[in-house]
Simulated assay, not measured.
Amino acid sequence: MNPVQDLSKLIKLTGERAKLDAKANGTYIVYKTDKGQIVREYANGEIVPIKNPGVTHE
C-alpha cells in the first residue's frame, strides 16, 4: 500500500471506532459531510444537522 491508502484506511477505522464508542456510551459522533454540513450522528442512525456550529452546548 502507499501512504495515501494507509492514511485513508486509518481514517476509516478511526471513524468506525468512534461510532462503536458512541453506541457503547449512548452518545453521538460529530463530523462534516461531503457537502460541508456539520452533523451529529446518533447510534440509532439518526443524523441531525448542527445549525450554529460556532455555538457550544446547542
Rank of each mutant, 00 (worst) to 15 (best):
Met1Tyr: 03
Met1Ile: 06
Asn2Thr: 13
Asn2Trp: 13
Asn2Gln: 13
Pro3Thr: 04
Val4Phe: 13
Val4Asn: 13
Val4Lys: 15
Val4Ser: 14
Gln5Thr: 14
Asp6Ser: 09
Asp6Ala: 09
Ser8Gln: 15
Ser8Tyr: 01
Ser8Ala: 10
Lys9Cys: 05
Lys9Gly: 02
Ile11His: 15
Lys12His: 06
Lys12Met: 07
Lys12Ile: 02
Lys12Ser: 11
Leu13Pro: 00
Thr14Gly: 02
Gly15Val: 01
Gly15Lys: 12
Glu16Gly: 07
Arg17Leu: 15
Arg17Tyr: 00
Arg17Gln: 15
Ala18Gly: 00
Lys19Tyr: 04
Lys19Asp: 07
Lys19Gly: 01
Lys19His: 00
Leu20Ser: 11
Leu20Pro: 08
Asp21Val: 12
Asp21Thr: 06
Ala22Lys: 08
Lys23Gln: 06
Lys23Asn: 02
Ala24Leu: 11
Ala24Glu: 06
Asn25Asp: 07
Asn25Met: 02
Asn25Glu: 05
Asn25Lys: 10
Thr27Lys: 11
Thr27Gln: 10
Tyr28Ala: 10
Tyr28Thr: 04
Ile29Asp: 00
Ile29Phe: 01
Val30Met: 13
Tyr31Asp: 12
Lys32Cys: 09
Lys32Tyr: 03
Lys35Met: 09
Lys35Pro: 08
Lys35Asn: 15
Lys35Trp: 04
Lys35Arg: 14
Gly36Lys: 08
Gly36Gln: 10
Gly36Trp: 14
Ile38Asn: 00
Ile38Gly: 01
Val39Gly: 00
Val39Asn: 00
Val39Cys: 04
Val39Leu: 07
Arg40Asp: 03
Glu41Asp: 02
Tyr42Arg: 02
Ala43Val: 02
Asn44Phe: 06
Gly45Pro: 02
Val48Asn: 05
Val48Glu: 08
Val48Ala: 05
Val48Trp: 06
Pro49Ile: 15
Lys51Asp: 10
Asn52Val: 11
Asn52Pro: 04
Pro53Gly: 12
Gly54Ala: 09
Gly54Tyr: 09
Val55Trp: 09
Thr56Met: 06
His57Asp: 04
His57Thr: 06
Glu58Asn: 14
Glu58Tyr: 06
